[in-house]
Amino acid sequence: MVQEGLERLMDRIVLAYSGGLDTSVAIPWLAEKYGAEIVTVTMDLGQGKELDDARERALALGAVRAHVLDLRNEFARDFVLPALQAGAVYEQRYPLATALGRPLIARHLVEIARLENASVVAHGCGTEKGNDAIRIDLAVRALNPDLEVLEPLGVWDVTKQEKVAFAKKRGIPVPAGADSPYTTDVNLWGRSIEYGVLDDPWLEPPDDVYVLTRAPKDAPDLPAYVEIEFERGVPVAINGVTLSLVELISSLETIAGVHGVGRIDLLENRLGDTKSREIYEAPAGVLLHAAHNELQKYVTPRDLARLASEVGVRYADLVYNGDWYSHTREAMDALVAKVQERVTGAIRLKLFKGDHRVVGRTSPFGLYDQDRIAQSADTRPSLELRP
Rank of each mutant, 00 (worst) to 15 (best):
V2N: 00
V2Y: 01
Q3W: 14
L6D: 15
D11R: 12
I13P: 01
I13V: 14
D22T: 06
T23R: 03
S24M: 07
P28A: 14
P28R: 10
W29M: 10
L30K: 08
Y34Q: 04
E37P: 05
E37R: 12
K49I: 07
D52P: 03
D53T: 15
A58M: 05
L61H: 00
L61G: 10
G62P: 08
V68H: 11
L69R: 14
R72Y: 01
R72N: 08
F75A: 02
V80T: 00
P82A: 10
A83K: 04
A83R: 03
A83C: 03
L84R: 01
Y90T: 04
Q92A: 11
R93D: 10
A99C: 02
G101E: 04
A113M: 12
A113R: 01
R114Q: 02
R114D: 04
N117W: 00
A118H: 12
S119L: 03
V120C: 10
V121W: 09
A133H: 14
D137Q: 13
L138K: 07
L138Y: 09
V140T: 11
V140K: 07
E148I: 08
P152D: 08
P152V: 06
K163D: 05
F166L: 03
K168E: 15
I172S: 02
V174D: 09
P175W: 01
A178E: 05
S180D: 14
N187L: 00
W189Q: 02
R191F: 08
I193C: 09
I193N: 07
I193Q: 07
I193E: 06
G196E: 05
V197N: 01
V197S: 15
D199T: 07
D200G: 12
P205Y: 03
D207M: 11
T213E: 04
P216I: 01
L222S: 14
Y225C: 06
V234R: 07
V234G: 10
N239D: 15
G240Y: 14
L245W: 13
I249Q: 03
I249L: 05
L252K: 02
T254S: 00
G260I: 01
L266C: 06
R270S: 15
D273K: 12
K275A: 07
S276R: 13
E278S: 08
Y280W: 05
A282L: 03
A282K: 02
V286G: 02
H289I: 06
N293E: 08
E294F: 09
L295I: 05
A305N: 08
A305D: 09
R306T: 12
G312A: 13
V319C: 01
N321G: 11
D323V: 02
H327Q: 09
H327K: 11
T328L: 15
A331P: 00
D333E: 13
D333G: 04
L335Y: 14
L335N: 02
V336H: 00
E341N: 07
T344C: 10
A346M: 15
R348S: 14
G354R: 06
G354L: 00
D355R: 13
G360L: 02
R361Q: 12
S363V: 05
F365D: 01
G366V: 08
G366F: 03
D371H: 08
R372L: 13
A374T: 14
A374W: 13
A377L: 13
T379N: 08
L383Y: 11
P387N: 06
